[in-house]
Nucleic acid binder design. Structure first.
Lengths: 182, 182
DNA sequence: CCCACAATAGACAGGTCTGTCTGGTATCGT
DNA sequence: ACGATACCAGACAGACCTGTCTATTGTGGG
């Protein structure tokens, strides 16, 4: 990827996450990325295309982060993943889940940006489901949906409420949902 | 409340919820509310003031809805509340939690709009906490925070995933968090 | 060497945004 | 009857938005 394109994408990602999509204009992005306007439109045909690239990049980043959790026992791996979420939510600059926030500004379900969000959420659910299946959960798809509730709750709560409080209860919530360790 | 003001507020509420705050301009609101611009600015000194009124009205509506759940046994009352959330999430036009969506477009924590969101969330948490205390929960504040996770998860999941799926698992998730009925 | 390409700066068009202002009409309480 | 208040229509200012365009400058591969 060309340096200019990378600069645009990383600048836009930071601004979109921190301030929202509609609140950040192209002029601001190209100024902070130190890129000419023509260069921007050379790499991204429209702002929507940039937003789409932003969402795809975030999805890739999260998949890589998930792959870093190398715990082999599925139950422990799930707990580690949720612990990590609690920690990330307590970091300065945390402003909730990128995908939830983007979806709040893209109401149309069939918009490409929303479809990228959907795909990421399906991946997340499947990640949970397969671990639960490996644990021998009697209904891994349903339990995975419950873990999705908690996942989204962490992202929202750590943003809008006290992140330390959220972090402190995550493990207990997940443990109660999964049932006692066998 | 004057008819013009009520018309503006209800029109704005529908548009803000369906399409987002930044995506809806004043001109559109006054056109659909059939109100003169001067009338609008007579009732609301700025768009932010209108957004604030929108959030306050949503908070009032939710408090009233909560008061309608008249179950006396606290555990049953909580389950009824969560059932209702699942049902609302499956209604056509559901687009997630108003407060979460608004917060996604208002990054500044000390903004009056965000403070209104915070106040509503504190009320929600307290509503859970007091029921849990009445149930004899050993740590009602912590369990209330877990229910908040589920509450937010329902709002997000019913919007971004399959609402029927979310609705089907809510009761089970809450039951697992609360523990078996005594 | 030279051509294709990536990059630069910045003007420009056409639209939308919030908010102000002018000017006129109607209703209502005193 | 009259003054205050609410409401209407719509022009206007000034800023910002996305996207296009011109014109020019490096730079690396064939």
């Amino acid at each position: 990827m060309s340096p200019a394109r990378r600069r645009v994408l990383s600048t836009a990602s930071a601004l979109f996450y921190a301030e929202g999509i509609h609140a950040v204009g192209i002029d601001r992005i190209i100024a902070e990325a130190a890129v000419a306007k023509a260069t921007f439109y050379h790499h991204f045909p429209s702002k929507d295309a940039l937003v789409h690239a932003y969402v795809e990049e975030q999805a890739r980043t999260q998949r890589e982060a998930m792959a870093q959790v190398t715990e082999t026992a599925p139950r422990e791996r799930l707990l580690r993943v949720f612990d990590a979420m609690g920690e990330i939510g307590a970091l300065p600059g945390f402003r909730g889940c990128q995908f939830i926030n983007v979806a709040a500004e893209y109401p149309e379900r069939d918009h490409p940006v929303r479809q990228a969000v959907d795909a990421h959420r399906r991946w997340f659910h499947e990640e949970f489901r397969s671990e639960l299946a490996a644990m021998g959960d009697p209904d891994p798809a349903a339990t995975a949906s419950m873990l999705m509730l908690v996942r989204d709750g962490i992202a929202v709560g750590a943003n809008l409420d006290d992140p330390a409080d959220v972090r402190a209860i995550v493990r207990q919530a997940v443990t109660r949902l999964l049932g006692p360790a066998v």
